[in-house]
Design a protein around this nucleic acid. Sequence first.
DNA 1: ATATATACGGAACGATGTTCCGTTTAGAAA
DNA 2: TTTCTAAACGGAACATCGTTCCGTATATAT
Lengths: 202, 202
Amino acid sequence: MDDEAHLEPAAPLRADARRNHDALVAAAAEVFADLGVDVPTKAIADKAGVGVGTVYRRFPKRSDLVVAVFRHEVERCAAAAQDLAARYPPFEALARWIDCFLDLVVTKRGLAAALQSEAPAYADLRGFFEDRLVPPLQGLMAAALGERSADISGQEMWRAIALLCAPATSDDFARTRRMVALLINGLRVDGADSPRTESIDS
Amino acid sequence: MDDEAHLEPAAPLRADARRNHDALVAAAAEVFADLGVDVPTKAIADKAGVGVGTVYRRFPKRSDLVVAVFRHEVERCAAAAQDLAARYPPFEALARWIDCFLDLVVTKRGLAAALQSEAPAYADLRGFFEDRLVPPLQGLMAAALGERSADISGQEMWRAIALLCAPATSDDFARTRRMVALLINGLRVDGADSPRTESIDS
DNA sequence: ATATATACGGAACGATGTTCCGTTTAGAAA
DNA sequence: TTTCTAAACGGAACATCGTTCCGTATATAT
């Protein structure tokens, strides 16, 4: 959240710092793709040709680096919602958008898992994704479900989808997709399928 | 898988070893409840009053200890399937059984997450749970869905449920339950809700 | 009582995350 | 151009944790 052209200058980086920043993002992108986002910091530092201290100075938390690497893709996914809503019937637009999210997350090794991590280093990652992706999802859900307000919020639906993706790699895209499809399916009918409130008495 | 009364003797443990084994299971049960199943080995060793070496000698993999602690509960959950199937209409029996599983997993801090771990130390944990729980689930699903064979296998359904539980603690039982309910809901209608096969063209 | 296989404890090792600090350097000022 | 200093650097140092190893202790058979 501190790169790219922004509003407040707040002290521009020195030339070497800027270089290292860029080199780190590039190196991280490569290494994340090869080894996953949970790769040792040293590997990123080596790839970028800097010391680990520099990694931590520019990107104090791992999530900062992850966000820097994937920001554009996340925002592209968020933006796709409008197009899809305009082009397809509501429910299909929703399904297609979710597919779009799956593509994003499933092709980045360890990203979906990191999204679930409670480690301090990943603390802001979920927030970043939710800020960008939940609103579009919520919009699509509202359109698809109509006034019959969802049994589940956009936030919760997002969480559920992200959870189902957690172990996913490109290999088991199909499996993940089946599980998520089941979830979407569940939206089609009015909820309240589970009437029991007492506990099991076995 | 190496405790309790078994078939082959295969060298009975020495008295002190037996004592330590039992102390470790007891200590682990306590510590797991307090700190979660991913607690440092040292904490378990200290609680049991033994050295870490002893922990690893008796329980080479963390999953061995986890299984020893939760085996009974898992088997009770597995056994509940029959009772439920006899007592309730098929779909309600399924829903209730899943609730039973949620209770089991959600009240054990970190257990659901460990179920997803790919670390060698947890390698056999998923297998243990699946061996005991997938068959009952499959039975209940078959009864509920009838000949219209599920769009999703018992194995995959179990996996999906377990994934949705991953971050769950007693606190967010309700949230987890809503997500799982949505999943169950998805079973009610014939699948194939997502007709698209081409990619998004935005 | 003795012998020995069994078991014990915890030091040692390796991997990683994160911080700290002595050294280097970009870039402004003289 | 030279000088000066804040900014930045690199990597050693520290902390944590999993796992292994081995010298010591002991249960138990003889």
